[in-house]
Design a protein around this nucleic acid. Structure first.
Lengths: 110, 110
DNA sequence: ACGTAAGATGTCGGTAATCGACATATGAAG
DNA sequence: CTTCATATGTCGATTACCGACATCTTACGT
């Protein structure tokens, strides 16, 4: 009965995570915040989406984790991409580009 | 156990349908073919995705259907957008633009 | 005349990603 | 001393999408 909000990140969450980890080691909470910042608060990825996605990626061997300390001295789990993850990112990006170009083409000329 | 193919149209199928119907009345099979053509065969929407999406849109009052004849004289069900559907399309398009710009930004500067 | 391919609409069950809600713990600020 | 932001995590529900299958019709080759 309850109307659900729009699904914000259909299949692109793993792409975003891999891309953000490519720049530097990051922990989960930071990734979520960064997505919010980049999107000017338009996209929000909740914990119920983020953490399962991280575990999924780790389980698939795309990223690896290590406990460490954040700048503020808190215990955090850092993630970084593996070699497979870096390759996967390239694939995801090129798929996204093809995909989004197709959507844009249909919007323009459909 | 079987590995599934990549999900081709994550949440954008209704946008594509509404957009293609905006140009002219079309029937289901034609819509699927058009998406294939526009994407240069890279995207394929199967019947198991297409027809439920059409029924969904009709049930939501975004499109309406009428039986007719195709150019080749076959019995086909034509769809066209309602007023609500046209408005919904505008919303979908502007959401898509915001969304894709965000993804592109993160790909570039993440 | 006959079979097969393509056009066309539809259903069904399974899969999997996302979601909101909840649980929990810690350090900082007031 | 309590509340807020940080931080990680689980859980169940929803739902779109998918491949497979079913069915009917028309066109085409042989």
């Amino acid at each position: 009965m309850k109307k659900s909000n729009r699904e914000l990140l259909h299949g692109t969450l793993e792409l975003l995570i891999l891309r953000l980890l490519q720049s530097k080691k990051r922990h989960g909470y930071e990734i979520a915040k960064q997505i919010q910042v980049f999107s000017k608060e338009k996209l929000k990825v909740g914990q119920g989406s983020l953490y399962p996605a991280l575990h999924r990626l780790e389980h698939k061997g795309m990223i690896k984790s290590s406990w460490g300390q954040s700048e503020s001295g808190r215990k955090v789990k850092f993630y970084e991409p593996t070699k497979e993850g870096a390759a996967q990112l390239q694939e995801e990006v090129s798929y996204w580009q093809e995909f989004s170009q197709t959507i844009n083409l249909i919007i323009r000329e459909g």
